[in-house]
């Protein structure tokens, strides 16, 4: 049974159309990656699902409920969390306050301050520091922790590893199975196609606002992906 699916999702920024009828499905407990060149519509898709971009209600279905027209805060309360591109922590909040803001939607579940600190132990010593004083990798951990604090049923990771050091990327991907256990799904935007295929169950390749290829990550054909990547 699909948890989340989009039905002919379109997206516009003013007069500019970024998405042309996307059909994407994420099942329970599944991790799915979105790959594609810059401007292919990956971030727009994420923003539309998260409610930052308003769509006609039926275009986004969550557990067979139409949610396209909901505001981001309403979407968050349904159990859809997002780790935005570039971390986007709240600079005037401390690390711990950033995490606490994540719990704002007041959903119950396994994720609490303690469990986030267990997942990313190095955050513990920085808990009362301003979030801006952390390194990029640590900030990404806070951003992930902040999303987990809402005990989501699906997490949207936008550019999960962009701008991070290789060692940090490794740490984050090592933590990923921890995150997607217990029936949590993930939709991941990743620049690195190899990583994307390695850590997810299925993938969608976007080009110019359309799905050009999708399938199981394990059986993906390198040549097909390159073709799809450039929209052929």
């Amino acid at each position: 049974m699909p948890m989340l699916n989009t039905q002919g999702l379109t997206g516009h920024y003013g007069d500019f159309q970024a998405l042309f009828g996307l059909d994407i499905t994420v099942g329970k407990n599944e991790s799915v990656s979105l790959i594609g060149a810059n401007g292919a519509g990956k971030t727009t898709t994420m923003r539309a699902i998260a409610g930052l971009l308003s769509s006609p209600a039926h275009m986004i279905q969550w557990k067979e409920q139409s949610i396209g027209n909901l505001r981001a805060d309403q979407v968050a309360k349904l159990g859809i969390a997002m780790v935005p591109e570039g971390r986007q922590l709240f600079p005037s909040l401390s690390v711990e306050e950033n995490l606490k803001i994540g719990a704002q939607s007041a959903r119950s579940g396994p994720w609490k301050l303690n469990s986030v600190y267990e997942l990313f132990p190095m955050l513990t010593e920085h808990r009362h520091k301003p979030s801006t004083s952390l390194s990029g990798g640590q900030q990404q951990m806070v951003a992930i922790g902040r999303a987990l604090m809402s005990n989501p049923e699906i997490i949207l990771f936008d550019e999960i590893s962009l701008g991070l050091a290789p060692i940090v990327i490794k740490q984050i991907y090592t933590a990923l199975p921890e995150i997607v256990r217990d029936g949590t799904s993930a939709l991941i935007v990743e620049q690195d196609i190899k990583k994307a295929l390695q850590y997810t169950d299925r993938f969608y390749c976007l080009s110019e606002g359309r799905v050009t290829l999708n399938g199981d990550s394990a059986n993906a054909d390198q040549h097909d992906i390159v073709q799809a990547y450039f929209g052929n």
Partner: peptide, 10 residues
């Protein structure tokens, strides 16, 4: 915007 993502209605 990000606050809204965290479930805070602006």
């Amino acid at each position: 915007d990000i606050a809204q993502l965290m479930g805070l209605n602006k």
